[in-house]
Design a protein around this nucleic acid. Structure first.
Lengths: 207, 207
DNA sequence: GTCTATAATCAGATAGAC
DNA sequence: GTCTATCTGATTATAGAC
């Protein structure tokens, strides 16, 4: 039920929103920790502190829970992008966004979904919010990529879409957790190393 | 039962080996297509053409099936490395190995395992064959990495282990399948693009 | 909307005959 | 070793009272 335009959200609606935020945050954390398949709905309900049946009053399926978590992360990404200083170059903006993704991931805040699960894929594709967010993000980054190529900052021989996908793939880069498990380097250093290999590659660069 | 050293494998043993090869190849394909969680033991049995109970006479668990597939791929990697021309530079060898991994993956021959599943992780760590293969592979590549750094081919500021993990991560790089799904480029070109971003990065290089 | 209790299903693993 | 038939446990989802 939508409130009429003149109303501000009622107390009940605010409580509802807070509860759903709690649920989605919990789902986000569990997805980051164990992935979609290993996360159970019982577990989510237990951690939120409500009965499973109550959970299903808020979200119709396990897939919908995951979709909500993905939409949340995408919103956060858009908020971060909106907070960037507008005077920076396209190349700097892109570097900042990729660094942000790596930081979220190494901090355990990035949901990890199986790229192959078909029911989940269907739910994502069917979600207006998710698809809108993905499209807007792609267009924003895509514009920066082309600008950075035109300015001689990014390799113009690479198709923009390949660069875009390479950025997206940082959200599920296992190198971060491998290095974290090794215990050899602090998180910030791991982020900078992966960021460096992403933009500068593994081969030496002439000074 | 082992045959005595003087014996060559009996006919029965040869049949057994052929059957197990068939099973592992099927598992390998299914793991590449759908991943560990989505692959069912019923499915494996059906595709091999035997009853599920028969499958369990060969492999004690679903995890063991996946381990066998991983060991197989690692053997293939070692065979490929053994076939490389010895006179090439360390840097060239590494590039060849990474290209090989990307080719296997884009051809649908790379098993994809969830990095988080704990029972599977335990099975892998408990497998002598897997751990031996992983160790040997790591040492071989590690030696080349340090050599390539000493020769000024790879960035000496990056820790060798970070470079090693970056190579291993190519085996589950989603960029390949994203670009393949887009239908914009032939497989060989996708492989070369990802190989280029891996070694040369996304940023421009001075000529 | 929240709860307890339960349905329904699916998938890994096994019993036991041959 | 192979089969059919079955067990067992886990998990998604729902019924129905409050």
């Amino acid at each position: 039920m939508k409130s009429s335009l003149a109303d501000k959200p009622s107390f009940k609606q605010q409580m509802l929103k807070v509860r759903e935020d709690t649920i989605v945050k919990t789902v986000n954390r569990l997805l980051a920790e164990k992935g979609f398949e290993a996360m159970t709905v019982d577990e989510v309900a237990a951690e939120v502190g409500i009965a499973k049946a109550s959970l299903y009053k808020h979200f119709a399926s396990k897939e919908d829970l995951a979709v909500a978590a993905m939409v949340r992360v995408m919103r956060q990404a858009q908020d971060f992008i909106a907070s960037l200083p507008a005077q920076d170059s396209a190349s700097q903006q892109l570097r900042a966004v990729v660094r942000w993704v790596l930081q979220i991931k190494i901090a355990g805040g990035m949901p990890s979904l199986p790229s192959q699960n078909s029911s989940l894929r269907a739910s994502l594709l069917a979600s207006q919010d998710y698809m809108d967010g993905l499209l807007e993000l792609s267009e924003r980054l895509g514009a920066w990529i082309e600008e950075a190529q035109a300015q001689g900052q990014l390799n113009p021989k690479l198709p923009p879409i390949a660069i875009l996908y390479t950025f997206f793939a940082r959200a599920c880069d296992p190198v971060l957790e491998f290095l974290k498990i090794s215990g050899l380097y602090p998180d910030e250093q791991i982020v900078e190393m992966v960021l460096s290999t992403c933009f500068d590659g593994l081969a030496v660069r002439q000074p």
